[in-house]
């Protein structure tokens, strides 16, 4: 029996995961660049640290398949041990006090859809304190867009 199959994009899957995190808001934007280029850029932890408002650095500490541990340093000297999944087009990381995620998918008709979520975690819980989360995500997307333009053609 040849049953029809459905394959979801990473952005569609991302919306579902974020739905399980009260307080999380998914902010999306379609960028004109190709998915491969956006994916490559987001896979770089230096880029990750550059576009996140409060980070000055992010360093890969461990990797096992797509499972990673990342050491992040904040602008005010705070440190975080983020663990989670990092693979092309997908990033989901948590520490005790932070949750951050990004997903990328080719947009029908051209360009790349980027989805972001994240914020201050209710410690140890699947919940985000819903303060300025969309504002921060929009700023992160602005910086990503700027970086893509700077490093453009």
């Amino acid at each position: 029996m040849n049953w029809p199959q459905v394959e979801l994009t990473d952005v569609e899957r991302f919306r579902a995961l974020a739905a399980g995190v009260p307080g999380a808001a998914v902010t999306e934007r379609v960028l004109p660049q190709d998915p491969d280029r956006v994916q490559a850029m987001l896979a770089d932890l230096d880029v990750f640290a550059t576009i996140q408002a409060d980070l000055v650095s992010a360093t890969l500490e461990e990797r096992d398949g797509d499972r990673v541990v990342v050491r992040a340093k904040g602008a005010r000297g705070q440190r975080a041990r983020l663990e989670g999944q990092l693979r092309p087009g997908w990033c989901w990381l948590q520490s005790r006090f932070l949750i951050t995620g990004m997903a990328v998918a080719a947009e029908p008709g051209g360009g790349t859809r980027v989805a972001l979520t994240g914020g201050i975690r209710v410690p140890g819980r699947a919940a985000i304190i819903p303060i300025r989360v969309r504002h921060e995500s929009n700023k992160t997307l602005d910086r990503l867009q700027e970086l893509l333009r700077e490093r453009g053609q």
Partner: peptide
């Protein structure tokens, strides 16, 4: 229990 990496 709220582990979002496990949710992933």
């Amino acid at each position: 229990r709220g582990d979002t990496v496990a949710m992933n």
